[in-house]
Amino acid sequence: MSQAVESQASTTSDFISLLRSEIEQGLLDQTLAILEPKINEMLYSNVFNCTEAIEYLKISDSTLRRLIRDKEIPYFRLRGTILFRQWELDDFISKRMIIKGG
């Protein structure tokens, strides 16, 4: 192969590599731009106040208050507000599942 052809092939190869790298980075940036708000929403929407926990668990206010009072349900306080993590509520539910077997 002549030196000119090798040089051109090298330049073309470098160009393709650079172009591929820029496309990959662009796709990563676009994907992150799309997913980041959804990820943040999921992270922060997984904390419920009492009203949301009542709706999520489909129980009455008095039942939730009794569960809190008797320390049967996991919760935490933030500046006096009682809050619940969704995954802990899911765990609370799964531990109380009654499986009918035969």
Results as ranks from 00 to 15, higher is better:
residue 49 N to S: 15
residue 100 K to G: 15
residue 74 P to H: 02
residue 94 S to E: 12
residue 97 M to N: 08
residue 19 L to G: 00
residue 55 E to H: 10
residue 68 I to M: 01
residue 21 S to G: 07
residue 52 E to T: 03
residue 69 R to W: 05
residue 46 N to Y: 08
residue 58 K to C: 15
residue 31 T to F: 04
residue 100 K to M: 14
residue 33 A to E: 09
residue 91 D to K: 15
residue 67 L to I: 00
residue 71 K to A: 08
residue 3 Q to V: 10
residue 33 A to V: 01
residue 34 I to L: 13
residue 93 I to P: 05
residue 72 E to R: 13
residue 65 R to L: 03
residue 51 T to D: 09
residue 95 K to Q: 15
residue 102 G to C: 01
residue 72 E to F: 02
residue 42 M to N: 12
residue 100 K to R: 15
residue 73 I to K: 04
residue 2 S to G: 00
residue 84 F to R: 10
residue 11 T to S: 04
residue 25 Q to I: 13
residue 35 L to I: 15
residue 35 L to P: 07
residue 101 G to H: 05
residue 94 S to C: 06
residue 29 D to M: 04
residue 61 D to Q: 09
residue 39 I to K: 05
residue 33 A to I: 03
residue 64 L to G: 01
residue 33 A to R: 10
residue 31 T to I: 02
residue 79 R to G: 08
residue 36 E to C: 10
residue 50 C to H: 02
residue 59 I to V: 15
residue 18 L to P: 01
residue 27 L to D: 10
residue 68 I to Q: 04
residue 67 L to W: 03
residue 78 L to D: 09
residue 55 E to R: 10
residue 49 N to C: 14
residue 59 I to W: 05
residue 42 M to D: 08
residue 27 L to A: 08
residue 13 S to T: 06
residue 59 I to E: 08
residue 38 K to P: 00
residue 3 Q to T: 07
residue 88 E to Y: 02
residue 8 Q to W: 11
residue 55 E to K: 13
residue 60 S to G: 05
residue 74 P to I: 06
residue 1 M to V: 15
residue 71 K to Y: 02
residue 12 T to P: 01
residue 71 K to S: 14
residue 54 I to Y: 03
residue 34 I to Q: 09
residue 74 P to M: 04
residue 17 S to D: 13
residue 29 D to F: 00
residue 34 I to R: 12
residue 8 Q to S: 08
residue 61 D to K: 14
residue 13 S to G: 12
residue 96 R to S: 09
residue 101 G to E: 07
residue 41 E to W: 13
residue 37 P to K: 07
residue 39 I to N: 02
residue 75 Y to A: 08
residue 7 S to M: 09
residue 100 K to F: 13
residue 8 Q to P: 00
residue 24 E to W: 08
residue 64 L to V: 02
residue 99 I to P: 02
residue 28 L to E: 07
residue 32 L to N: 15
residue 7 S to V: 11
residue 76 F to W: 01
residue 71 K to M: 05
residue 86 Q to P: 03
residue 38 K to T: 07
residue 34 I to D: 14
residue 10 S to T: 14
residue 96 R to G: 14
residue 13 S to K: 04
residue 86 Q to H: 10
residue 38 K to G: 00
residue 33 A to G: 05
residue 86 Q to W: 06
residue 42 M to G: 14
residue 38 K to S: 03
residue 77 R to A: 14
residue 23 I to S: 09
residue 5 V to N: 09
residue 74 P to S: 11
residue 88 E to N: 05
residue 96 R to F: 00
residue 50 C to G: 01
residue 34 I to T: 13
residue 82 I to C: 05
residue 1 M to K: 12
residue 37 P to Q: 06
residue 23 I to E: 12
residue 86 Q to M: 09
residue 26 G to D: 09
residue 42 M to H: 04
residue 40 N to P: 04
residue 65 R to T: 06
residue 54 I to W: 03
residue 47 V to A: 05
residue 27 L to K: 14
residue 57 L to A: 13
residue 71 K to T: 11
residue 46 N to F: 06
residue 68 I to G: 03
residue 17 S to V: 11
residue 8 Q to R: 13
residue 59 I to Q: 10
residue 39 I to R: 07
residue 71 K to E: 12
residue 68 I to D: 01
residue 48 F to T: 11
residue 23 I to H: 09
